[in-house]
Computed example of a mutant assay.
Amino acid sequence: MTAHPTADPPWTVERMPDLTGTTIIVTGANSGIGLEAARSFALHGAHVVLAVRDEHRGSDAAATVEGSTEVRHLDLADLASVRAFAENWHGDIRVLVNNAGVLVPPFGRTRDGFELQFGTNHLGHFALTNLLLPYLTGRVVTVASSAHRTGHIDFDDLDWSTRAYRAGSDAYAQSKLANLLFTLELQHRLEEADSRVIATAAHPGMAATNLGSGTGNAMLKLVGKIAVRWVAQPAVAGAAPTLYAATAPMPGAGYAGPSRRGGMAGPPVLVDRAAAAEDRATAARLWSVSEELTGVAFPW
């Protein structure tokens, strides 16, 4: 992961602007970097909506946030839930943070029949974003991963119906590559529509969160525990690229990530992505397929 050089002092959360009077939605904000991002947004004055699958856990998480919060139910693995969330929304949204995700769980499918990681990490957020775009005034931030570098979009088998699922890491990489291709095409469409909203993306590097706790891969779980103990930065530091992508000066489709340890830790900066994540033709095709699968289209 190549960081773009900068002569400025390292970016810190203290450089975030005053967000008083704004509303920010963070999906999957009941733990990990989503919760840490919610805390920082609220401390800077935003009203933060924790969009979570488990409202009880969401309420417990919200109780740890100093500032204005709200908990709403959202299950990204169920398009009916995504639609209900959007239908019940009213008012401007300064930032939508597409943070929730699943990491290499045992093979499973969403309520709509999609492979669980592709359906949750990509299609759920694809539908949510397009349904909420009429309310957006600022940015859409999608949390990706350095795992996108090994990803491949297999349009002949997006649901892993014919391929061996194995540990699920290939499916995860596909979903994270899809996140960046979604950001690329979304920015293109926003520009074509003369919208002031911009699409950005971020990755947390190696952060100590519980994202991989549901994996069915025993070896990956062991490696994860070792990495968290010896390599990972705390969740609050892992949230910094998300906060940077949401509030710092960023180009459309810009990608933020840690600046040190090969992109695993350190203050956030603009970083490069794999060539596959910059393929406009693949991004456009993925968008078209995603519209067909979800029944949700770009609103303009």
Rank of each mutant, 00 (worst) to 15 (best):
G34D: 02
V49A: 06
A29V: 00
G32D: 09
S31L: 06
V141S: 06
I93H: 04
I24Y: 00
D157H: 14
H122T: 04
S81L: 12
L128F: 08
Q117L: 02
S31G: 00
T142N: 15
A38K: 03
A38V: 09
L133A: 08
G113H: 07
G32R: 13
R57E: 13
H56R: 15
H125F: 02
V82L: 02
A127E: 09
V48E: 00
T110M: 03
T23V: 15
L136R: 01
N98D: 15
A29R: 04
D60W: 00
G119I: 02
T23L: 04
F107I: 14
V140F: 07
Y135I: 03
V95I: 11
D78P: 14
E55F: 09
I25H: 04
L35R: 04
V95Q: 01
P105E: 10
I33M: 14
L35G: 09
V104N: 14
R83D: 08
G138Q: 06
L128Q: 01
V97W: 02
F118L: 15
S31Y: 07
V26Q: 02
T137V: 15
L50F: 11
T27H: 08
V82A: 02
E55L: 01
R72M: 05
R111T: 15
S40V: 08
F107T: 12
R149N: 13
L116H: 10
P106D: 12
R72F: 08
E36W: 09
T22V: 03
S59V: 10
P105N: 12
A100E: 01
L158M: 03
F114L: 05
G119M: 05
N130G: 10
N30F: 12
G108T: 07
E36F: 02
S145H: 13
E70R: 08
G101Q: 10
G119W: 13
A61W: 00
H152I: 14
F107K: 14
F155N: 08
F118S: 11
R109M: 03
E66W: 13
A38D: 05
E55M: 09
L96A: 01
G124P: 11
A51C: 11
A100H: 03
L132T: 04
G151W: 07
H125V: 06
F85S: 08
F107D: 01
R94Y: 07
G124T: 11
H73G: 11
L43Q: 15
V97L: 03
V82H: 06
T110Q: 05
A84F: 00
R39I: 05
A80F: 05
S145F: 12
H125I: 04
R53G: 01
V82S: 06
L136C: 04
A77L: 07
D156P: 02
D159I: 09
E66A: 15
T142D: 11
A147K: 06
A127I: 12
V49N: 00
R139P: 04
A86S: 14
H122K: 11
G58W: 08
A42S: 13
V104M: 15
G58H: 12
T142P: 07
H148I: 08
P134V: 05
N130T: 09
H47T: 05
T27I: 07
N99Q: 03
A144R: 06
T129G: 02
L74P: 02
L158S: 02
N121M: 04
S40L: 08
I24S: 01
R39N: 06
W89D: 08
H56V: 15
L43N: 15
